[in-house]
């Protein structure tokens, strides 16, 4: 069974159709990339999946269960976490606490418990603290634990955002341009990190990325969006040679000027 499935998902903003009847199937334990030119509807798609936008039509199934009518909070609790294109950390809070907030749903002590049962509350906080530190170490930012998040260097902030998302213990992690603004070395590290998340932690990853080297390097499946519509889907090699994709990126007619690499018919299209 697919982990995440979007069926004929449509989102309109006034007259603009940002996402148009998109079908998307994300298999468990895969790295699935969504690419497309600016304004293709990638981030809108993410916002629909995480519940910030309500899709106008179509449905979203997570582990076979419809989630398109749930609030972002409840979708997060189902096990979907995301990071943002422009980093959105809790800037005035320490790095460690950012991760602890990510653990929010896994901590039990609520409003009254700290007063009634101080001991178990302290135990739980200690345990959470330990796990948060482990996560920070896993992402190699443990040395920054007690800094305010906004004082971190850019690359570390990106890592922290991933750490915070991991604290949710998600089954599906949505990464919105995780390598944006990174130099080649940092990009390479992040690429390895994404691979490790899948291989070591078994997290399924849905990725928006502009850096084609990253996409082609680690993706199992690539979906291409243009003007809100899915124009191509397949393995990196299949997508790379699809004339529609080349057209979408380079402009209409561009594909005809290129050497024929493969016939359009070989590209798996549609859901």
């Amino acid at each position: 069974m697919a982990l995440l499935e979007c069926r004929k998902l449509t989102k309109r903003f006034g007259g603009l159709v940002a996402v148009n009847r998109v079908d998307l199937v994300v298999e468990p334990q895969s790295i699935h990339s969504v690419i497309g030119p600016n304004g293709a509807g990638k981030t809108t798609l993410f916002n629909c999946i995480t519940g910030f936008y309500r899709a106008d039509e179509g449905e979203i199934l997570f582990q076979g269960e419809p989630i398109h009518w749930l609030s972002p909070t409840h979708i997060a609790r189902k096990g979907i976490a995301r990071t943002y294109q422009n980093i959105r950390l809790f800037g005035n809070i320490s790095v460690l606490e950012n991760v602890l907030i990510g653990m929010h749903i896994h901590l039990k002590s609520g409003l009254i418990a700290p007063l009634l049962n101080l001991k178990s509350f302290i135990e739980e906080e200690k345990e959470a603290y330990k796990r948060a530190m482990e996560l920070l170490e896993y992402l190699d930012i443990a040395e920054w634990a007690f800094f305010k998040a906004r004082n971190l260097p850019y690359g570390q902030q990106r890592r922290l955002e991933i750490a915070r998302a991991l604290a949710l213990q998600p089954k599906l992690l949505l990464l919105d341009e995780p390598t944006a603004g990174m130099n080649p070395k940092e990009t390479e590290e992040t690429t390895q990190l994404i691979k490790r998340l899948r291989d070591e932690l078994g997290i399924t990853i849905l990725l928006i990325e502009h850096d084609m080297r990253v996409v082609m390097n680690i993706s199992d499946v690539v979906t291409v969006l243009d003007y809100g519509e899915k124009i191509s889907e397949g393995t990196p090699d299949q997508v790379r040679s699809d004339p529609r994709v080349i057209e979408a990126y380079l402009g209409h007619g561009a594909a005809s000027g290129l050497k024929p690499v493969a016939s359009a018919g070989t590209v798996a299209k549609g859901g």
Binding site: T50, F52, S71, P72, T73, A76, R77, A81, R82, Y84, R88, L89, F90, G91, N92, I93, E97, L100, I101, G102, H104, I105, L107, S109, G110, L111, P114, F121, E125, R164, A167, L168
Partner: peptide, 28 residues
Amino acid sequence: FVQFTKTGRAIRAVAEDQQAAALMGVDV
């Protein structure tokens, strides 16, 4: 309470960024 409990952390997180807090499973 605000500094050291889970609920207090949630309050500070919501004060910083409601959307991001919701994404962490915090009920805003």
